[in-house]
Design a protein around this nucleic acid. Structure first.
Lengths: 212, 212
DNA sequence: TGACCGGTGGTCATAAACTGACTATGATTT
DNA sequence: AAATCATAGTCAGTTTATGACCACCGGTCA
């Protein structure tokens, strides 16, 4: 291996170290409560060095978001493997979504603040764009599921309907989870969320099968 | 961890990388056939960087030697654990010595050239002193074994005798191994060496039990 | 014998990476 | 609204790394 190659590797290793350290801190304390000095310390670098790898604290945060969203994507993509009724696939999606975020409450908090466009972090337009773009990829998965339901005759929806239904479904998912994470009690949280979402889904699917 | 600590760690990691890379090369090709540029390349560093970690090619070599000798020490030290006749312990030592070096023919070549004081590498006096000092530690182990034999009444040797016997034993060990490694055939090498040393030991122990 | 030559150990000017004291700014207290 | 504080971001100085270069040595050939 050439010195050049080695340096590139080490650069990437440090970058990952910074991301790993700051992710942990952000999840523990929230964006605003974390200082760049803290991140530097945890990554065993000086503050100045952080700025050799990222332009700003926000950029670090954005990168973490993008990584997490990508991670979710890679996992969720397998839901499409099987040939089954769209209503089942969409229930699986919901199930997976809940499970994925319940493993890390703060990860959800971080992502949901973007997904619901309620973040108060001073991102540049560029950063916002990229994060939203990635988020939309996830949302479009729902659209694909709905579309397959229409194709197979299971649902009867127009093009515009699909978009609306997608938004309702997405909102419902995040709304229910948020409700229980931020308001509800710890006890039996997962069960409550699941029940809520099952109920929601039942109404939801019945609705789109018959009404529209 | 502080930046300072991290840097020290990384420094040590590089140093070890250089030693690891050059050890491999030295064993493969011998000291003179290895260039510093090769070492640098294998360690994924520039040539100049090598000289930030070692003063010279010889110093690298010396460090490898010292490490290897130390490694041998740490392993051989356990031979003293048990309470047994000195003649058995010394046979074990011989056995261990053979086994240790047969696992790596070139390691033996490297070390023996020092132990027999036949190295042609341009070490500084300082380096030679340290390596010889470490080698003498190993030789003194033999002395301790002999001494314990005298203490228990198994051998009858004066102070001066012990030193002479030690040298004879040491020379015999290395001589026999060298003989087979550099002259003898590959086939049944270990067996031949063992047989030789067993014979040598029998004569040797009989000699020091009765004659001196 | 001595001029030449290829190869290599070691050097050093330059570049890259890192550091932490410092500055500017926005929030908070008095 | 002045003063104090906290902290994101900067930058001059330091450390570490690079590879072209030099000096030297051993071998070759006239």
């Amino acid at each position: 291996m050439s010195p050049e190659k080695r340096r590139i590797r080490e650069r990437e290793r440090r970058r990952r170290a910074i991301l790993k350290a700051s992710r942990k801190l952000f999840l523990e304390k929230g964006f605003n409560q974390v200082t760049v000095s803290e991140i530097a310390q945890k990554a065993a670098l000086s503050k100045g060095a952080i700025y050799l790898y990222f332009r700003s604290k926000e950029e670090i945060y954005a990168q973490i978001l993008l990584n997490d969203i990508e991670k979710f994507h890679k996992k969720v993509i397998h839901i499409f493997r099987e040939e089954r009724p769209a209503s089942e696939i969409i229930a699986d999606f919901a199930d997976f979504y809940v499970k994925f975020f319940l493993t890390d409450r703060e990860l959800f908090r971080i992502l949901i603040s973007f997904m619901l466009h309620t973040n108060n972090v001073g991102f540049t337009e560029e950063m916002n764009k990229r994060v939203i773009q990635e988020t939309n990829k996830t949302i479009s998965i729902i659209e694909r599921i709905l579309q397959s339901g229409v194709d197979s005759g299971e649902f009867k929806l127009g093009k515009e309907d699909i978009r609306r239904v997608r938004n309702v479904f997405w909102g419902m998912l995040n709304g229910i989870i948020s409700l229980h994470l931020f308001v509800g009690k710890e006890t039996k949280r997962e069960e409550r969320i699941r029940t809520n979402i099952e109920n929601g889904l039942a109404i939801f699917i019945e609705g789109i099968k018959n009404c529209m």
